[in-house]
Structures are given as C-alpha cells and as structure tokens.
Computed example of a mutant assay.
Amino acid sequence: MVFSSLFGKRPTEPESPEPAAPEQPKLSLFDRMKQAVTRTRESLSDSISSVVALTREVDQASLDELEPRLLAADIGSATTAIIMENLRQRALRTGIESGAQLRQILKVELKQILDGVSRPMQHPAAPPEVILMVGVNGTGKTTTTGKLANLYRTQGRSVLLCAADTFRAAAIEQLEVWAQRSDVPVIKTKQGGDPSAALYDALTAAKARGTDVLIADTAGRLHTKTDLMKELDKMRRTAEKLVPGAPHQTFLVMDATTGQNGLQQARLFTEAARVSGIVLTKLDGTAKGGIVLAIATELKLPVLYAGIGEKIDDLIPFDSTAFIDSLVG
C-alpha cells in the first residue's frame, strides 16, 4: 500500500462483473424444424403460391405447373406421381377451390406418405439396447453417432460408444472427441483392428456396467455388397451371442444434400444391413428436403432423427407433422 502511494496510485479495484447475457428461449421442435427446412420451404411453398396466385379455382393447368415444383424439391418421381394422381382425381371429383385448399390437401397427402412407413421403435426388455450406425463415408455418420449419444444422455439414459469404424483414418479419434463432448465413455481398438472384436469388448463392458444404450459406429466402406454383408453379418452374430436380440436397431445415416443421388447407396445398405430407420443429416443445408418423402416411398423406411446444424444438440427426433407443417406452411 505504501509503495502504491509513493507513485500516487490507488489500489486496483476489482472489476465489476459484466451482466450475464439473457438466456435465449429454447425453440420448440416445430420452430427448429421450420428453421431447418427454410430453403426447401422457400422453393416449394412459394412455388405453390405462384401456381395458384392468379387462379381462383385450381384446374388441370395449375396442377401441371405444380408437378415440376415437387420434383425440384427432390420429392422424387415415384412420390410425385402418386401425389399428382391423387390431386388430379380430387380435382375431377369435387374440385379444388383455392390455393389454401390445395395446400391443405397437399399436406394431407404428404403426411399419409410419411405415416405409412412409421413404426414404433422396439426396445429390449432389459439393457443394453444395441444400435449399429451404418452409412457411407462423408454422410456425417461418426458425428451423428456422437450427437445421438448426447441426445440419449440428456434423456437420462446411460450411453456407451463403440469405435467399430477401424478402417477410416482418424475415425476412432473423431469419435473420441465426440465422446468427450457428449460426456460418455468409448470403447476402442487400434486402427485396422477387427470391428467385431471391438464390438465384443464394448458389449461386455456395457453388460458389466449396466449401460442403457450401446451405439457402435461402423465402417463406411462400400466396396461391394458382398463385403458389406459379410462384415455386418459378423458384427450381428457377435452382438447376438452376448445380447439376445441384438442389434436392436440399425440406423442408416444419409446426407440430405445428396438428394436422389444418395438413394442408390441407401438401397444397398438397406438390403445388406437390415436397416430399421434413417437418420438424415444436413437437412438445414439443402433446398431438397423433399428427399424425406422419397425415402418413405422408395426405401419404405421412416426418418427417425434429423440433423439440423453443426452443434452437439442439433440432432432432433423427426416429427412428420412438424416437418410437413414447416415444409408446406
């Protein structure tokens, strides 16, 4: 204190803490879905408005204009054909009086397609529930595995990750990073090791710890259908030996930005891996969110979760009502 006074200085006063930023209100599932499909909605919903803007009654000509708009949203030719036939039949029987009525009818048609493949998830009577994550490299499979672990953990379920993608360089390290972010443990082996051996160790650990959910990130190689089936079959047999009925879920991770181009790869996996549902990533990064409808029509599988951003909590349960309401308006 004396030293300070010699130089005419006063003791440094503690800085006042900056006021905390107001906490942002949590968005509802509908609002988050609406944000994710903004680009698709702008191209589709606005197109519907322009089709019927100058027409009091929706006629054959305006319906013909609607068809390419649906295709542009990547709904797919098969799904579009079904929708257009139903709309034309409705127009012939009872008429479609306005753009507002067209929107409502279209929403009903789209929701029926999604609800037609919806199915309740079958959970085992006793833990662990075993989930295999499959999909080609580049779809965000490993990242999605980490986000799914975080989602389950926030729901109060204990989670263990298995790094069974032992072939892609840095896949194990990438999953370890997501495990840390999600605050869940991970079982791993060395790169190039046997994926089934890694899964065996993870299953043993999950049983010993009483873990609720084990999620295994598998390799995204796609050399031939035969190679894929052999590897996945070996992992399924390993799981079944230790946990009856396992794997209970097999989630195929698809990149929404690839649109129709991703469907052929998806068909290969659904045939080889006994896929139970789709996790659609990067839904917020495309104007072709209609791929959700194409998946339902052509793969006969439900979309269970949607990736709507890069943050750890940007993976949400897919809700058909929220999706259709957000898409069509």
Rank of each mutant, 00 (worst) to 15 (best):
I75N: 05
G309L: 04
R39C: 02
I96H: 05
L160K: 13
Q122R: 14
T143G: 01
F7M: 10
L232Q: 00
L114V: 11
L280Y: 11
G140P: 05
E65N: 11
A239S: 12
D59R: 14
T142E: 01
T145A: 08
A239G: 12
V292P: 03
A36V: 13
G138R: 07
S50I: 15
T139Q: 00
L71W: 03
L214F: 08
E42K: 06
L66I: 00
K34M: 07
A170I: 05
S276H: 10
R157C: 07
V213D: 02
E67T: 08
Q265S: 12
I48C: 01
I312R: 03
P68D: 10
H223C: 06
A198Y: 00
D319A: 08
T94M: 05
T224D: 07
K188H: 01
V117K: 13
P68Y: 11
T55P: 00
R157E: 10
S118I: 12
N150M: 02
L299F: 15
Q155N: 14
N261P: 10
K190N: 01
T139N: 06
D31I: 00
A219S: 15
A216D: 02
A208Y: 10
T257E: 05
D255W: 12
L161D: 07
K225Q: 13
L175H: 07
T143V: 09
P120I: 10
M84T: 04
D194V: 02
T40I: 05
L148P: 13
C162H: 03
S196Y: 00
Y200T: 08
Y305Q: 01
L222G: 10
E85G: 04
R93T: 13
V303H: 09
L263H: 05
L148F: 08
Q122F: 15
A322P: 00
Q260A: 04
V58K: 06
A169D: 06
E173R: 11
E176R: 12
H223N: 11
L148E: 06
P185Y: 04
T154V: 10
L70D: 00
M33D: 03
F318S: 03
A72E: 06
V159F: 09
N150F: 13
T143N: 07
K107C: 09
G307K: 03
